[in-house]
Nucleic acid binder design. Structure first.
Length: 271
DNA sequence: GGCTGGCCCTGTACGC
DNA sequence: TGCGTACAGGGCCAGC
């Protein structure tokens, strides 16, 4: 599932191929949830940014196209030499044809992805984006800030991380990895400042590994060139339930937290 | 305003 | 072999 490293990898690949391009044609899957993309016809892409797991393409008419890849969403740029995208293609949800003959395609098997076109910066229709926490690599983000954010709620720390409010861009994989690395139980409800600092360091380390290796591919994720990531070989906790903890040898366990599968070490991550 | 639980989706794995 | 069921999970929303 695309989290911050995967979305940022895709952004870096797409930006030089779509910025400056004008949309000459656009079409979408019949489902109304993808229809907003049609409003981009005639617009020119001015920039491509990322906030958390959201991609934001600035348009020259003062609006922006917002894309969330959900669980299985993929974006790719196809050249004029490729077969033009059509609604016949399986799982194709939206496609844009540019003035140079290239095309941007959005495929999404499970249809958890989202598209929106809004006035630039007006995110009221996307509540999670509107209330998104700071970027984890923001140099002004300090442990005390994360500590205050976590202390403002009594929900489990993993639930809070997945809410995107204490910090942006963390999903199930990197949350499990960071909590294991920091030795914090996923359902802990109060963290000291020092443990918040350990968590922030661990989050940054997990996300940096994902970024460096082009993302984590467990099943569906591909970058904009169709390549899998390489970070899955570096995972030390997520998906390893029943296997020995790489730190203490205790068998890792799995449970549901906030409805999400969660792997943790009962010894290293005591409550 | 905070929190919980249900819903959206479809491919895959598994049991019968 | 074929069918039915459970499961995976990010974000949104209704209800408390």
């Amino acid at each position: 599932m695309p989290e911050l490293p995967e979305v940022e990898t895709i952004r870096r690949q797409l930006a030089p191929r779509v910025v400056g391009r004008t949309v000459v044609d656009v079409d979408t899957h019949p489902s109304p949830k993808f229809a907003p993309a049609r409003a981009t016809r005639g617009a020119t892409v001015t920039d491509l940014r990322r906030r958390g797991k959201y991609l934001l393409a600035g348009l020259d008419d003062g609006r922006e196209l917002i894309v969330h890849l959900g669980m299985t969403g993929r974006l790719a740029v196809e050249t004029p030499a490729d077969d033009p995208p059509t609604g016949e293609r399986p799982h194709l949800r939206a496609w844009w044809r540019f003035d140079d003959g290239s095309a941007l395609t959005f495929t999404d098997i499970r249809r958890f992805g989202r598209l929106a076109v809004v006035p630039r910066g007006d995110h009221r229709r996307l509540p999670t984006l509107a209330r998104l926490g700071p970027e984890p690599f923001d140099p002004t983000l300090e442990a005390a800030t994360l500590h205050r954010a976590l202390a403002s709620s009594r929900r489990a720390v993993k639930t809070q991380l997945l809410s995107q409010r204490p910090v942006a861009g963390v999903g199930n994989i990197y949350a499990d990895e960071a909590l294991w690395d920091a030795g914090i139980n996923p359902v802990a409800r109060r963290l000291s400042v020092s443990r918040s600092a350990r968590l922030l360091d661990a989050l940054r380390a997990a996300l940096a590994s994902g970024l460096r290796l082009g993302g984590t591919t467990l099943r569906d994720y591909r970058d904009a060139d169709g390549h899998t990531g390489r970070n899955q070989d570096e995972l030390r906790c997520y998906g390893r339930a029943g296997q020995p903890c790489l730190r203490c040898g205790t068998l890792l366990r799995r449970r549901l937290v906030d409805g999400r599968g969660t792997t943790w070490c009962p010894r290293c991550q005591r409550r």
